[in-house]
Design a protein around this nucleic acid. Structure first.
Length: 813
DNA sequence: TTAGGGTTAG
C-alpha cells in the first residue's frame, strides 16, 4: 500500500526502488548462505524429531522455511500430520506433494486407519488403486488393523481376496494382519487355517496373534498348547504374548502353569511391563492365590487401574468383600481413577449373593460418580439385579439403556435362566432378535440351557442353527450347552454326536455326557467316560461326582457308587454336599439297603436337607417300608409344612396298603393346612402345539376319539399280556373302577393322542411333571411292542426310552 | 518417510 501511495512521486519512487533493490540483494545473499549451509538430510531428521516429540507446530514452521524439500520431507509431513490427527494439514501436504509414492499414500491411509476413519481409509485405498499406485504391505497392514479393531469382517474378507490376487498371500507381515483380523472378528477357525498354511515366515507376532485368538475364544487348553509349541519351535515369547497366556491360565485356574509362565516372564526380563504385571495379578487372583496377586500388585511402580480391578475381582470371587471394598476405597483415597471395568468387577461378584444391600449401596455410588451412563456399568447392574432375582431392579436399569447391546440383552436372559424363569428368558431372546441384535456365544449358550430345561428340543435346534448361519463359529460353551440340551431333551444319540464332534472338551463337557447317559437310562455306559476323562488329564469337579453318583443310582451300581463317593473325598479332597448325599442315599435306598441309607443320613455332619429325605421316602415307597417312610415324611413335613410331597407319598402308601383311614387323615391335614398338591399332568407336542392331559381329563376337543383309542389300546395290550396293576389306583373303589381310573391316566391319554396324530414311524415323545406310575410304565413297554413304536417318556426323574417291550431304565427308576 | 501382536467386565 505504501508503494502505491508514493508511486506517482518520482522522488519517493526512486528512493523506494533503491530500497527494494537492496532488499532483494540482501535476501538473495541470505538465501544463498542458507543454501550453502543447508543439509536436507539433517533437516528431514530434525523434522522427524519434532513429530516424535509431539511438536507438530515446530515441524510445520521448519517445513515452511525449508528452501528445498524432497520426497522424504513430504512423506514425513503427511505421516506426521496424519498420526497427530491433523488431517486437513495432512491432506494439504498430500495434495502439494510433487511426486506421490506408495509411501505417501500409505502414510495418509495409515493415519485415517489409526483414528478409525473407515470411509476415508477405504476411499483413499480405492483412489490409490485407481490412480495406478500399488498398495504395499504397509497399506494392507494398516487397513487390516482397522478391520481388526472395528470388527469389520466383510471388509477384511474382501481385503483377503485382494491380498491373494495381488500376490501378498505369502507375505508374513500381511498374513499376520489377516490372522489378527479373523481373530478379532471371532473367526478362530479361519485364523487357524491361515496360521497352519503359513509355510515359513511365522514370527513371534504371528504366534502371539493366534495365541491371543485362542485365549479370546475362551479355549484355554489350546492357548497353553500353542504357547508350548511356539517355545518348542524356538520362538521366544515377549511382553505381548505373556498377557494372553496368563489370561488362559487364569481361566483354566491352572496355577501351576501360571507360575511357570511367571518364571519365563522374569527370566525374559518382562516383569516390569504393566500389561504383563496386570495379567499376572489377574492370573493369581483367578487361581485363588490372593497373596501372590497382592505381591505383584504391590511391586508395581506404576499405579495401573487394570491390575487393581483384577485384584478386586479376586477378592470378590473368594468371598472377601471387605478386602475388595477397602481396595476400592483406597483407590479413591490415592486418587487412582476408576474406570468402566472397576464397578462391573464388584457387581459381577455381588450378583451371586442373595442380599441386595451392597449392590444397592454401590448403585447409589455409581449414580453419584456419574458412571451409570456407561454401558459396561449398566450391563453389570442389570446382570446383578437379574441374578439376585430382582427383575424390577434389572428392568429399571435395562430400560434406561439407550443403545442396548448384546450384553445388555444377555444379562436379562442369563438372569432369567439363573432364576429358573426359562420362558421369560426365551421371551427376552426373541425380543433381542426383533431388536436386530445378533446373539453371541453367551446368549446362545444361556438360551439353549432354557430350551433344555423346558425340553424344547425343536426350538433349541433352531436357536443353534440360526446362530451358526449368522456367522460365528461354534464355541466350547455353545457346544457344551448344545450337548446338555440334546441330553436333557432325551436325544442322547444327538448329544453323543455333538460330544465326539467337539475339537476340545472341558470338565463341563465330560460331566454333561456322564449326566446325559444317567438321565437317559444308560448309567452303566456313563462310567467309561469318567475313566477316559481322567486319562486325558481333566480333573473331575464337584458336579462331575454328582453326575457319577446319579449314574450309579440310576443303574443300581451300589459298589461303584460307594467307590466314587470315597474317591471324591480321598483323591480329590471334595467334601460331599447335599446333592452327593441325596444321590448316595437314593442309590442305597433304591437298591433296598434302606437301613444303611438311613444310617448315612444320620451320619451327615450338616443337617440333612429335603433332597436327602425325599430320596429316602421315595425309595421307601418302592420297597414298602412304612417305618422309615413315616420318619422321613414327618421330618419333611417339619422342614416345610407347605410341601405336598411327603403328605402325598405317605398317603399313597397308606392307600396301597389298604389303610384308607390313615390316607384320608393325611389328606384332611393337607386341606386344613392349605397344602396344594401339584396335579399329575402329561403333555405331547404335535406340529408345534402342546396338548396337555390330566388324569381322566375330558377337556380336549378330540376327547371322544382319544378315549375310544385308549380302550382299543388297552384291549390290544391285554391280549399281549398286560395286566392292570390296581395297586397304583389310589381310590377306595371297586376293582373295575380302579382299572378304568388307571386306563385314563394322563400318560395313556397322551400316548393315544400320539398314536392317532403322529406319522407312523415317528417317535412319540411324552412329558410328565411327576414320576411315571408303575402301571403306566408297564403299559408303555407293551404298547411299544404291540404298535412297534419308539416311545420316549420324560418324567420328573429321568427319561424312559421304550422299544420293543423294553425300557432303557431296566425297570429301575 | 508408511505397518503388525497384549491385561480388567457379561
Amino acid at each position: 500500500m505504501h508503494i502505491f501511495r508514493i508511486k506517482n512521486s518520482n522522488k519517493f519512487y526512486s528512493k523506494h526502488y533503491w530500497f527494494l533493490r537492496l532488499s532483494i540483494q540482501i535476501h538473495t545473499q541470505i538465501s544463498s548462505q542458507l543454501s550453502r549451509g543447508f543439509s536436507l538430510v539433517k533437516t528431514n531428521e530434525k523434522l522427524k524429531g519434532y513429530f516424535e516429540s509431539g511438536h507438530v507446530d515446530g515441524a510445520r514452521k521448519l517445513f515452511d522455511k525449508m528452501p528445498k524439500r524432497d520426497e522424504f520431507t513430504y512423506n514425513s509431513m503427511v505421516a506426521g500430520f496424519a498420526n497427530a490427527g491433523r488431517f486437513n494439514e495432512a491432506k494439504q501436504v498430500f495434495d502439494e506433494t510433487p511426486k506421490r509414492s506408495s509411501i505417501t499414500w500409505s502414510a495418509l491411509i495409515s493415519g485415517y486407519c489409526k483414528y478409525g476413519y473407515e470411509d476415508e481409509s477405504f476411499d483413499l485405498f480405492w483412489r490409490m488403486r485407481y490412480e495406478g499406485e500399488r498398495p504395499s504391505q504397509y497399506t494392507l497392514g494398516s487397513l487390516l488393523r482397522l478391520c481388526s479393531v472395528k470388527g469389520f469382517l466383510s471388509r477384511g474378507e474382501k481385503l483377503h481376496g485382494f491380498i491373494i490376487k495381488t500376490g501378498f498371500g505369502n507375505n508374513a507381515f500381511v498374513v499376520t494382519g489377516l490372522v489378527d483380523m479373523y481373530v478379532k472378528c471371532y473367526r478362530i477357525k479361519a485364523a487357524e487355517k491361515l496360521f497352519r498354511t503359513m509355510d515359513s515366515g511365522k514370527n513371534h507376532v504371528t504366534w502371539t496373534a493366534i495365541i491371543n485368538g485362542y485365549s479370546l475364544n475362551g479355549n484355554s487348553d489350546k492357548t497353553l498348547q500353542c504357547f508350548c509349541q511356539m517355545r518348542s519351535e524356538g520362538i521366544e515369547a515377549n511382553q505381548y504374548t505373556f498377557p494372553s497366556v496368563l489370561t488362559a491360565c487364569g481361566s483354566a485356574s491352572d496355577l501351576r502353569f501360571g507360575e511357570q509362565v511367571h518364571g519365563c516372564v522374569v527370566r525374559g526380563g518382562f516383569h516390569a511391563n504393566i500389561f504383563v504385571q496386570s495379567a499376572l495379578v489377574d492370573m493369581y487372583a483367578k487361581c485363588g492365590d490372593l497373596n501372590c496377586a497382592k505381591e505383584v500388585l504391590e511391586s508395581m511402580e506404576v499405579l495401573q487401574v487394570v491390575a487393581w480391578n483384577s485384584m478386586i475381582v479376586g477378592y470378590m470371587r473368594h468371598g472377601l468383600e471387605e478386602n475388595a471394598l477397602s481396595l476400592l476405597e483406597k483407590m479413591h483415597g490415592i486418587g487412582l481413577k476408576m474406570d468402566e471395568f472397576t464397578y462391573p468387577s464388584v457387581l459381577n461378584a455381588l450378583a451371586l449373593r442373595k442380599d441386595a444391600f451392597y449392590g444397592e449401596c454401590l448403585h447409589c455410588f455409581i449414580i453419584k460418580t456419574g458412571f451409570c451412563d456407561h454401558i459396561l456399568v449398566s450391563n453389570a447392574l442389570v446382570d446383578m439385579y437379574a441374578k439376585q432375582g430382582s427383575s424390577i431392579g434389572a428392568l429399571e436399569v435395562f430400560n434406561e439403556i439407550k443403545d442396548k447391546d448384546v450384553i445388555s440383552w444377555t444379562s436379562m436372559i442369563t438372569g432369567c435362566t439363573h432364576n429358573g424363569s426359562h420362558e421369560e428368558a426365551l421371551n427376552f431372546f426373541q425380543r433381542m432378535r426383533i431388536a436386530g441384535i445378533y446373539p453371541d456365544q453367551v446368549s446362545v449358550s444361556s438360551t439353549l440351557s432354557s430350551c433344555a430345561e423346558l425340553t424344547l428340543h425343536e426350538l433349541g435346534k433352531q436357536v443353534h442353527g440360526n446362530y451358526i448361519k449368522s456367522g460365528p463359529e461354534t464355541s466350547l460353551s455353545v457346544d457344551n450347552s448344545l450337548l446338555a440340551m440334546y441330553a436333557k431333551c432325551g436325544c442322547l444319540d444327538d448329544a453323543i454326536t455333538v460330544f465326539y464332534s467337539m475339537t476340545s472338551r472341558n470338565v463341563m463337557s465330560w460331566t454333561a455326557i456322564i449326566v446325559g447317559h444317567a438321565q437317559n437310562g444308560r448309567g452303566k455306559e456313563a462310567l467309561p467316560f469318567y475313566d477316559e476323562m481322567v486319562l486325558t488329564g481333566i480333573k473331575p469337579d464337584f458336579i462331575t461326582f454328582i453326575g457319577l453318583l446319579f449314574a450309579c443310582s440310576h443303574a443300581g451300581l451300589v459298589d461303584e457308587g460307594r467307590q466314587y463317593f470315597g474317591t471324591m473325598i480321598d483323591a480329590y479332597g471334595i467334601q460331599p454336599g447335599p446333592d452327593h448325599y441325596a444321590s448316595m442315599i437314593d442309590l442305597l435306598a433304591r437298591s433296598g439297603k434302606l437301613q444303611e441309607a438311613e444310617s448315612l443320613v444320620n451320619e451327615m455332619v450338616d443337617k440333612p436337607g429335603p433332597a436327602v429325605w425325599k430320596a429316602l421316602l421315595t425309595a421307601c415307597r418302592k420297597h414298602g417300608n412304612m417305618d422309615i417312610a413315616k420318619r422321613a415324611a414327618m421330618t419333611l413335613i417339619e422342614l416345610d409344612p407347605q410341601d405336598a410331597f411327603p403328605y402325598v407319598i405317605l398317603s399313597n402308601m397308606y392307600s396301597a396298603a389298604g389303610r384308607w383311614e390313615d390316607a384320608a387323615g393325611l389328606r384332611r391335614l393337607m386341606k386344613l393346612r392349605g397344602v396344594i398338591k401339584e396335579p399329575g399332568c402329561s403333555w405331547i407336542e404335535i406340529n408345534s402345539k402342546v396338548h396337555t392331559f390330566f388324569s381322566e381329563d375330558r377337556s380336549h376337543p378330540n376327547t371322544n376319539e382319544i378315549y375310544l383309542k385308549v380302550n382299543d389300546i388297552i384291549r390290544l395290550i391285554k391280549e399281549a399280556g398286560y395286566v392292570p396293576d390296581v395297586k397304583f389306583s389310589l381310590h377306595d373303589v371297586n376293582e373295575e373302577t380302579k382299572e378304568l381310573g388307571l386306563a385314563y391316566h394322563g400318560e395313556k391319554l397322551a400316548i393315544a393322542f400320539g398314536l392317532l396324530y403322529l406319522p407312523e414311524n415317528a417317535p412319540i415323545r411324552i412329558f410328565k411333571n411327576l414320576r411315571v406310575c408303575g402301571d403306566c410304565h408297564n403299559a408303555m413297554k407293551i404298547i411299544s411292542k404291540v404298535f412297534h413304536r419308539y416311545i420316549v417318556l420324560r418324567d420328573s426323574n429321568c427319561f424312559h426310552h421304550f422299544k420293543e417291550g423294553q425300557c432303557s431304565c431296566g425297570d429301575y427308576w
